[in-house]
Amino acid sequence: MSPSPLQVLAIDIGGSKSKAAIVDSNGTWHSERERLPTPKLATPKDLLPVLRELGALLDMPFARVGVGFPGVVRDGVTLNAPNLGKGWKGYPLADRLEKLFGTPCRANNDADVQGLAVIEGQGTELVLTLGTGIGSALFRDGVLLPNTELGHLPFKKGQSFEKRLGEAALLARGKDDWCAEILEAIELLREGTAFDQLYLGGGNARILEKRDQLPPGVRCVRNRAGITGAARLWA
């Protein structure tokens, strides 16, 4: 008889909002989603009370904590956080949250985590998250190449994918121009990675989906995938 799946406090830290739910390690949800604003230019001192409050709002027992973080994470330690504040270089996030919640914690890059919830495990699969910044995750036959951070590569007019396609660019240039450049970026990434399937996540992916502009081999995934993937860190 297989063991029961672990109940996980699954947290998705975003540049503007942080979200959490109780989800088991198989990806089944056991609560509604709670959301709180991520403090602007959040430092660890700013953010940890927000995560503690999310856990309190859910008010349900859990055996593990899983976290998707908007930056490079290695062995539970954050190496950067381009859309947060200072203090994240070399920050032991998993260890601090383990002490905060009194239970083991695993943390990983948010796009990598989202991929755990959506990939099928066949061929080359690329995840692109469209939110405050641009996140990416690349899988080959279900195996993750961690912390790819394609959003920081040069894209157009001497600017990175993130600079051209992040939320600030969307607000500054409008949806029509932004959507056109997203489609350009997709074809460039198709040439560069030869992906079999591209998954678009994050809060701004729905703009393309609503316009019915998705090219072949591309589909949008639910914004909840970041939370589900955080729980699947314990699968």
Score class of each variant (00 low, 15 high):
2 S>L: 13
3 P>F: 13
4 S>F: 06
6 L>W: 10
9 L>F: 04
9 L>S: 07
10 A>Y: 08
13 I>C: 11
13 I>L: 10
14 G>P: 07
15 G>M: 03
18 S>E: 05
23 V>E: 09
24 D>Y: 04
24 D>C: 08
25 S>I: 03
25 S>R: 07
27 G>T: 06
29 W>D: 00
29 W>I: 00
32 E>Q: 14
33 R>C: 11
35 R>L: 13
35 R>P: 00
39 P>H: 08
40 K>E: 14
41 L>R: 12
41 L>G: 04
41 L>I: 00
42 A>D: 10
43 T>G: 10
47 L>Y: 09
55 G>W: 09
58 L>C: 08
59 D>P: 00
60 M>R: 15
61 P>A: 07
61 P>F: 02
61 P>T: 07
63 A>C: 01
64 R>S: 11
66 G>L: 03
66 G>R: 02
69 F>W: 08
73 V>F: 13
78 T>G: 09
78 T>S: 15
78 T>V: 04
78 T>M: 08
79 L>M: 14
79 L>Y: 12
80 N>Q: 12
83 N>A: 11
88 W>F: 13
96 R>G: 03
99 K>W: 02
100 L>M: 15
103 T>V: 15
103 T>W: 02
104 P>K: 06
105 C>E: 09
107 A>W: 09
112 D>H: 08
113 V>P: 11
115 G>R: 06
115 G>E: 10
117 A>C: 10
120 E>T: 13
120 E>L: 05
120 E>H: 11
121 G>W: 08
123 G>V: 03
128 L>C: 10
131 G>F: 01
133 G>E: 01
136 S>C: 03
136 S>F: 00
137 A>V: 02
137 A>Q: 06
144 L>I: 08
144 L>W: 05
146 P>T: 10
151 G>R: 03
156 K>E: 15
156 K>P: 00
156 K>A: 11
157 K>Y: 12
157 K>D: 15
157 K>G: 04
159 Q>N: 10
159 Q>H: 11
159 Q>L: 15
160 S>Y: 02
162 E>Y: 01
164 R>N: 14
165 L>V: 06
165 L>A: 08
165 L>K: 05
169 A>K: 00
170 L>C: 08
173 R>V: 05
175 K>V: 13
176 D>R: 10
179 C>E: 14
180 A>K: 04
183 L>D: 05
184 E>L: 11
188 L>F: 01
191 E>G: 03
192 G>S: 13
192 G>Y: 10
195 F>A: 06
195 F>S: 01
195 F>Y: 15
197 Q>R: 15
198 L>H: 04
198 L>C: 10
199 Y>S: 01
200 L>R: 02
201 G>A: 13
203 G>M: 07
203 G>E: 04
204 N>F: 07
208 L>K: 05
209 E>K: 09
210 K>C: 02
211 R>W: 03
212 D>F: 03
214 L>K: 07
215 P>A: 09
216 P>H: 11
225 A>Y: 04
227 I>W: 06
227 I>H: 09
228 T>K: 14
